[in-house]
Structures are given as C-alpha cells and as structure tokens.
Write a protein that binds this DNA or RNA. Structure first.
Length: 765
DNA sequence: GTTCGAACA
DNA sequence: GTGTTGTTCGAAC
C-alpha cells in the first residue's frame, strides 16, 4: 500500500538499488536510513554505475510511454475500453471458483535450516550466503534491512553483528525432499517452484478427507516418533522451543494453536485435525514442522495467483484462506499492491506507478489505457490480475526447455584463460546434459564484462548436440568472435555462461545417429584400407567407431577441438527440408520422415558395404564392379585434385581460380579481400576489419565472420559440395557410389571447417 | 524462425 | 567484494 507510491517520488537514489521491503518481516523499517547506507556503500562502484544506466533506460521507457499516452485520443480510449470489456466479459465467464489451490512456502528456508542445525544462531541476526551475495536472511536480520539478494558486505554495513553462514545446498535439498513427501500426501501432482515452495491442488484431497475417520487426521508430535521410550516434560518443552526457530510473535494460525475444529490432547503429544481446508493445510504445516523442525506458511485461494499472494499474508508460520467467492476475491484484490503479484517486478511496478497505478483496483480502472500502452500479453495479464483471476490448473510436470551453467570470477582478460574456462563450463554442462539424457540445438554463450554489461550470443545448429566437444566447438566459436570484435582490446570478463536449448527428444535422433555413425565407420575402415593420405586421420577422428558415440575423450588442447561441423559429423543429421538427398547414392528421397530417410541410407550403406566386403574379403566380385569402383575413385580424385589446385590459387588471390563462380560474387570477394589485405589468414582479424560482409561465391550465402581464413574454409567446403554434386550427377544414374569413395570427398577441410554447420545440413538436402 | 536483451522468480 | 538457473516476452532481422 505505501511502498508503491514511495518509489515514484524517489529523490536522487536509484529505485532499482533501493531496499526492496516487499518481503515478510520487513514492515516498518527505517527505509530512508537503510537506503542511505546502501547507496553510500554502493556509490562509485561499477555495479552502481551499471544500475544507474539501467535505471535511466527504464526512465526513458517511461518517458516514451508518457508521450504515447499523451497522444491517445478520447476515441481511441473509448474503443479500447470496449475491447477491454469484451475480453473482461469472456474472462469473467471463465472464472472458476471450484478449485482449492494452496501455495506453501517455507519460512526463511535456508536460514531456518542453518538455525535449526546450529542453535547458537537462533537469537542472532544471520544470513545464508557470502560476502558477495546473500540467499536469505533470518527475521532478526530483516529488522536491519538485511534481505535476500543483497550482497553480504552491504548487509554487514546495515548490521555489523550479522553472521553469514555459507550455503549448504545438499542439506536444503534433503529437507526439501522431506517436505515434498508430505506435499505428495495432499496432492501427488504438486508443482515445486523451488526447494522451499510449491503449489498444491487440495480439491481432491478435501473431497476424500470428508470421509476420513479421526484416526487418519491424527498426528503426533515429534517426541512420539522418537524411538526412545518416554521423554521428560522438560525435554519436550526444549524441542518445542527449538522448533519455531524464527520468532516469538507469529501473526497467527500456526499449526500448534488449536483451531475451532482441531483437538489437542491435554498432554500435547498428538493432535486431531478437522476436515476443513484450513484444518487440512494446518495439518500439512504441522507435519512439516514435526518432521523438519521448520515452519511453513501457506495461502489458500481459488487460483494460483491468489494463493501465492495469500501465503505471504501471514508469514511467517501462518496461513491465510481467501474464501472462494467473487466478492471475497474482489475485496482482497482491491488494495493489493501490484508489486505483490507474481510477474510484476520492480520495472513493471515503476512503469505502472508512473501511470498512477499502485494497487490492483487501479489496474482495473486503467485497463483501457493499459491496453493501448502495453503488449497484448501484458495487458491481458493485468486484466486477469485486476479481476482476481489466475490459473486453476496446476501443470503436472513442465518439461525443461534449457539447461545452463555460469560462473562469476574476478576479471579474466587472457584469451587462453577465457577459452579454458569456456571449456570447463561446457564440460559441466555436458555432464548435466548427460544426466538427463538431453540434446539441444541452440548453444548460447553469456558474457558479462567488468562493467556488468551482459551479452548473449547464440547459434542454432541443424542438429542436436550434447557432448563436451560439440558444445565447446560452438561456444568457442561464439567466444572467439566476441574476442575478435573487441580486439585489439581484450574482453574483460567477470562472468561467463553456457546454455543449451531447443532440445530434441532423444528418440528422434537415435536411429539416424546410428546410421551416420555407421556411415562414418565404413568410411573409416575404407579410408584405412585405401591409405589415402590426408583423409584418413581426419575421418578417424570424427568417426572412429570407439569415439563416434562418445568423442569427449579428445585431447584438451584447444586447437584440437572439433569445429561444429566436425561435431555434427560425429553425432547426428537433421532433416527439416521436404526432400532429402542420400549421401550415399545421391538420389533424392521424397520424405521428411527421418526414419524413412534413415532406412534408405541404411539400405544404401549395406549395399555398399556388401560391395566393399566382397571386394576385400571374397573373390566373387565381378570384374565390372571392380572396374566401376576404380572409375569412381579416379573420378573423385580427379575432381579433388582440380579443386585443390583451384583452392591453392584462390588462397593467394580469391578473385581468380574459381572458374565456376559468378561475376558479381567475385566482386564481393575482391572487395572483402581489399579490406583485409593486412591480415594474415591464420590470425583473428582486428576489429577494424569489420567492413563488408563475406558472401560465399558458391552458395551465395552471407557468412558470419570477418576472418578470411574462416571464410576460405567455408568456400572450400562449398566447392567440395560442388564436387560432390557433380559427381552425383555423373554417377547417380549408373554407378552406385560406395561409402568409401563418397567419404573421400569429406576432405580434411570439410571436416575441419570452422564454417557454420548448416553446411552439413545443405549436404543432406 | 533466430537472435538478443530484458524482466522476473 | 553485487549470484545462479530457468522462463518468457518483445523487438529486430
């Protein structure tokens, strides 16, 4: 109520830096004094400067919004109002008050666990985390303004006697498992939000509960569960004192005091809970407390949005039920600060405040305006909030959409260190991916420099990847590009992260993967037999049978790590086009079904390998087949030699030596060359070489690189494909190209190419 | 459809 | 001495 308005009239300090007292246990604090200390401690730091910048950006957004508002006509507003009413009517129709949704939230969870395990902390202001960052604080500390997401060193300024306890996730996870077991008794499909929070649908439980005998609603105090026979009254009192570790003055509805329905045995060793919602929830909280010696708070409401707000109402160690009537809901919403609503954070709050909106009823009053100033998704959400609506269905199990790992460190500017850190992150990520059996197509690199500026760079591959080498191949390229873009200045990093997303289900990929590996295996065997110089080692690396499925045992040497193309060659192929070209017979396969395509390749491969086997292991092969085979090889070698000759010339002078290249493309290449003539083809280009984009003269596609060497690789690659297709045209009608010959065309350059891996994709088209 | 920054929990 | 993980959205391309 009061806090919304306060941030609109901030004087001099950044609203985003100021104390966020939107948290239980933080009412009635001396905000001004606390904010002064926060500002004084922060001022001048890089972090502060960045926050200042971001605050100004938000202010600009607000200015823009206000200008937009000023241009809105009466007529527009009227029309908007009609539209809003239409949507509101529809929403109102869908209002469902029949579900009983509960949001449970452990009180100051990490801090409470630490206090439970170390009673000396009980009466001290304490927080869990480090000097850099606190995860949570106990209620003593909150009185000083110390709260979650506050750096420890600032907290120490606010409260010099603060005890900071390091995080112990294993412990919290163990407790979390304990409470989840209890949740499952009330709703087996409960949705955990974090280690200490969950949504539960109590509807079904309550229905059954009505028929439960008292015995099923009777729960014992902890002492009863102890194996030791009888505990003295003193011992029991002691345990009870330990239990609500948090506070003396809890707002109410604690699981222990008897409610109207509950029955407490005189000795206090068991309690019978009633059949109402409140009783059921109180029982759940009681059981949590008995099991973990920690308290929880809960909110009971007809939907998730409201339940979450309600669980905060009587925190700590309390619960609040919002009756399931429209009237009660609307009353509840009326003065509710918008910031209390899940999804409305400090930026949205500030923007709404600028429009004079601080409570949910304001929201309802201004909906027409909001519908003109905010996106559809945003104003629909606002409208729902203003009507007290939220989801009544708790999703069972949401599938993960991304997985990431990131690390903050003290300044890292050396390229080698950055690369090796990047690899470490990829190793961690790959390990996690393996645990969940995931593969993803999009790799995102996250960088934060010493000025706290965050950048993300992503690359989507045509095929899902999972191993260290595959992920690192992409992340490394992304990182290298950023390093190049910054050069000659170094990237001064304080954080690096790697994320993988766009998951493919493993079932989709497995069969095809087998095929490609088989493909490369045959090739490897063939190339060894043939002993054909340059190709052999490369093929062996990408597709040697032992390493094909798990090629994360490559040497850690950075220069030896595979490029994305190589990574793909070893794992997968994707097909998203309408027709697919078989890499073995070069015929177009009219399908988008990878399994069908796969079967086709398998067929081709088995034909081919039969031929190969026959050739090497039996004498039954006909002369003509042998001859054909030799012809194929001769053709491939001839084309390859021709291409190599062209390539040598083009390395020296890209304009020449590419006879098949169209004129206009050549001009583009020469333009690029002029721009880069000072750079050697081996070294990353300095930032001043940004100039024109590279357009491949063969495939006509723009290449995302400023490095001529990289670009050359790509052109080589395309030329190789030309060779392939030329060969394909020559042979598709009469000669069935065997895997070993077609594999010869995977020249070293192809496999080593740094170019984007859609080249492989193209190959399969 | 992809990429990227931003907001949010 | 200002964290980590994951999701979602909107804008730009």
């Amino acid at each position: 109520m009061e806090n919304g308005v306060a941030s609109t009239k901030e004087e001099g300090f950044l609203s985003r830096m100021a104390l966020n007292d939107n948290k239980a246990g933080m009412e009635g604090l001396d905000r001004d004094k606390i904010n002064k200390i926060i500002m004084e401690t922060s001022k001048g730091s890089k972090f502060y400067e960045n926050e200042l910048k971001r605050d100004q950006q938000v202010n600009q957004r607000i200015t823009k919004m206000m200008l937009q508002k000023a241009r809105i006509t009466e007529q527009q507003l009227k029309k908007a109002q009609a539209q809003v009413e239409k949507v509101a009517t529809a929403l109102e129709k869908s209002r469902d008050l029949s579900r009983v949704i509960v949001h449970v939230d452990m009180d100051a969870f990490y801090a409470a666990v630490e206090m439970r395990d170390c009673p000396e902390l009980k009466d001290k202001p304490m927080a869990v985390g480090s000097m850099s960052m606190l995860s949570t604080s106990n209620y003593h500390a909150r009185k000083y303004g110390v709260r979650a997401a506050m750096p420890g060193f600032i907290a120490k300024k606010l409260c010099p006697s603060l005890v900071i306890v390091p995080l112990n996730f294993d412990k919290y996870r163990a407790v979390s498992n304990e409470i989840r077991e209890i949740f499952a008794d009330y709703d087996p499909n409960f949705q955990p939000l974090s280690l200490d929070e969950a949504y539960l649908d109590f509807t079904d439980h309550l229905e059954q509960r009505q028929h439960w005998p008292e015995s099923a609603r009777t729960h014992h105090f902890r002492v009863r569960d102890m194996t030791t026979a009888e505990l003295s009254q003193e011992a029991m009192t002691e345990i009870r004192e330990l239990s609500p570790v948090l506070f003396e003055d809890s707002p109410g509805s604690s699981p222990s005091p008897v409610g109207p329905e509950g029955v407490r045995a005189p000795a206090g060793d068991f309690e019978v809970f009633g059949t109402s919602v409140e009783e059921a929830v109180r029982e759940m909280r009681f059981r949590i407390e008995q099991k973990t010696m920690l308290t929880a708070s809960a909110g009971i409401a007809p939907n998730m949005m409201l339940a979450k707000v309600c669980s905060d109402k009587n925190k700590p160690n309390g619960q609040y039920r919002l009756p399931s009537t429209r009237e009660a809901v609307m009353d509840f919403i009326h003065n509710l600060p918008v910031r209390k609503v899940c999804g409305i954070g400090k930026v949205s709050e500030k923007m709404l405040n600028a429009l004079g909106i601080s409570t949910c009823s304001h929201l309802g009053q201004q909906m027409a305006l909001l519908s003109l100033l905010f996106s559809e998704t945003a104003w629909h959400h606002f409208l729902e909030v203003s009507l007290g609506l939220g989801s009544t269905y708790i999703p069972r199990h949401e599938e993960r959409k991304s997985m990431s790992t990131e690390r903050t460190f003290k300044e890292l500017s050396k390229v080698e260190e950055q690369l090796s850190l990047c690899r470490e992150l990829c190793e961690d990520l790959a390990e996690d991916m393996k645990k969940e059996g995931l593969k993803g197509k999009t790799v995102t690199l996250k960088l934060k420099n010493v000025n706290f500026e965050v950048k993300t760079r992503a690359m989507t591959l045509p095929c899902a990847v999972a191993t260290v080498d595959e992920i690192f191949a992409v992340a490394k390229d992304l990182l290298k590009t950023e390093i190049e873009n910054e050069s000659p200045q170094p990237l001064r990093l304080r954080l690096m992260g790697v994320r993988i997303s766009a998951f493919a289900s493993l079932d989709d990929k497995k069969p095809l993967q087998k095929s490609i590996i088989g493909f490369l295996q045959s090739a490897n065997a063939a190339s060894k037999n043939e002993g054909s110089g340059e190709n052999a080692p490369v093929i062996a690396k990408a597709g040697s049978p032992a390493k094909a499925s798990e090629n994360n045992h490559l040497p850690p040497d950075l220069s030896e790590t595979p490029s994305p193309v190589q990574a793909h060659a070893s794992t997968s192929a994707c097909a998203e086009s309408e027709t697919l070209t078989c890499p073995v017979c070069f015929r177009k396969v009219e399908t988008t079904d990878l399994n069908v395509f796969n079967t086709h390749i398998d067929q081709c491969l088995s034909n081919a390998s039969q031929k190969t086997n026959n050739g090497t292991e039996s004498d039954t092969e006909s002369e003509s087949d042998l001859k054909k085979d030799r012809e194929e090889r001769a053709a491939v070698n001839k084309l390859r030699r021709r291409h190599e000759a062209q390539e040598k010339k083009s390395k020296v002078n890209p304009q020449k030596g590419q006879s098949s290249v169209k004129k206009d493309s050549v001009q583009k290449v020469s333009l690029i060359k002029d721009d880069n003539k000072t750079a050697t083809s081996q070294e990353p280009q300095p930032s001043n070489s940004k100039g024109p984009v590279f357009v491949c003269p063969v495939c006509q596609l723009t290449q995302e690189t400023h490095d001529l060497a990289v670009f050359n690789h790509h052109v080589d690659l395309c030329l190789n494909q030309e060779v392939l297709h030329e060969l394909g045209r020559q042979t598709s009608s009469s000669i069935n190209l065997s895997p070993r010959t077609s594999l010869c065309v995977y020249s070293e350059k192809f496999v080593k190419s740094l170019g984007p891996c859609n080249t492989i994709d193209k190959f399969f088209r």
